[in-house]
Nucleic acid binder design. Structure first.
Length: 263
DNA sequence: TTTCATGTTCAGCA
DNA sequence: GTGCTGAACATGAA
C-alpha cells in the first residue's frame, strides 16, 4: 500500500506500538528482504537497541537505534508493519521480525519488493539514493523550479523520486485529475496556473490521505482513486475513464476533464 | 492460464 | 547528463 501517506501512517503506527522497547531479536525471515546486506549485519546492528526516533522521507522510513545508526525501511509495493503480542498472531508473509520483551513487530510483504537495511543517518541514505526532497517539504517555488527544469510527461516528473520523493502512481493520477491536467501533458507546456493548481492538489491529496490513515476507501467519492479501475466512469463528468500506459505503469484519467495543454 | 499490481533499478539506446 | 523503453525482481489475486 505504500506511497507517502501510507508510509507516514506506518511511521505513526510504529511510534505508537514499538518505540523504546528493547529489541531482543531481529531476524530476516527471508534473506532477500535485507539485500544487499547480509542478514547478520542487520541483526547485529539492531539487536540490543531500541527504536528511539522515527523519520520519513518520501516513501522511506527511518528508525534511529539507541546504540547509534538508523534502520532503513522501504515498503515496496505490498509491505506493511504489523505489531502483535503472541506468535500465534504472526501475520502471513512475515519477512523480517523484530522481537521485543513483550511483543513483536513484523514486516509483512507478500511480493518482497520491500527492503530493510541500516545506514549512518537518513541524510546519508537520501544522498546515496539521490532522492529529491520530500514532496511535502517543498515550497511552491521549489516545486515550480523542479517542473521547469524537467522534460517529458508531467506524471513522470511527479513520480520521479530523484526529483521529488513520495508521490507514486495512485496519488499522481489523483493530483493530476483534480488539477485538470492530462498525465501525458509535456511538463514544459504547463502554465503558471497549472503548476500552481498541481502544487496545491498534490499537497491536499497527500494530506487528506494521511488524515484517513492511508485508507483509500475513506477518501471522498469525488476522488478519481475511488474509481480507478477499468470500465469505471469519471466522478466529475460521468464520461469513460481512459487507462494508458506511461512509464511502465497504468495511468487512469478523464480525457474530458483533463487537458493536454495549458489552462 | 494470463494479466495486472500503491516500487525500484538497470541495461541499452537516442 | 537527460530521457525513454523494457525487463527484472517475487508473489498473489482476479
Amino acid at each position: 500500500m505504500p506511497e507517502l501517506p501510507e508510509v507516514e501512517t506506518y511511521r505513526r503506527y510504529i511510534e505508537s506500538t514499538s518505540m523504546h522497547r528493547p529489541i531482543v531479536r531481529a531476524e530476516a525471515r527471508h534473506p532477500l528482504i535485507v539485500r544487499p546486506f547480509q542478514a547478520r549485519t542487520v541483526s547485529t546492528a539492531v539487536e540490543g537497541s531500541a527504536f528511539v526516533r522515527s523519520y520519513r522521507h518520501g516513501k522511506n522510513l527511518f528508525l534511529e537505534l539507541s546504540r547509534g545508526r538508523w534502520l532503513t525501511w522501504h515498503f515496496g509495493m505490498s509491505g506493511e508493519p504489523v505489531f502483535f503480542e503472541r506468535m500465534s498472531d504472526e501475520p502471513p508473509y512475515d519477512r523480517f521480525l523484530f522481537t521485543f520483551e513483550n511483543g513483536h513487530l513484523a514486516f509483512s510483504d507478500p511480493r518482497m519488493l520491500g527492503r530493510i537495511g541500516v545506514t549512518a543517518s537518513p541524510e546519508e541514505y537520501v544522498r546515496k539514493k539521490k532522492l529529491g526532497p520530500d514532496v511535502l517539504t517543498l515550497t511552491k517555488a521549489d516545486f515550480m523550479r523542479i517542473l521547469e527544469r524537467s522534460r517529458g510527461a508531467t506524471k513522470k516528473v511527479l513520480m520521479d523520486q530523484h526529483k521529488m520523493a513520495g508521490v507514486g502512481n495512485l496519488y499522481s493520477d489523483e493530483a493530476l485529475f483534480q488539477s485538470g491536467i492530462d498525465p501525458r501533458a509535456p511538463v514544459q507546456c504547463l502554465g503558471g496556473g497549472d503548476m500552481d493548481r498541481l502544487y496545491h492538489n498534490v499537497r491536499k491529496v497527500l494530506r487528506r490521505s494521511i488524515e484517513r490513515r492511508g485508507d483509500l476507501s475513506q477518501l471522498p467519492r469525488t476522488y478519481l482513486l475511488r474509481h480507478r479501475s477499468r470500465g469505471e466512469r469519471c466522478p466529475k463528468c460521468g464520461g469513460d475513464l481512459l487507462a494508458v500506459p506511461l512509464g511502465g505503469r497504468t495511468s487512469y484519467f478523464c480525457p474530458h476533464c483533463q487537458r493536454e495543454g495549458g489552462t
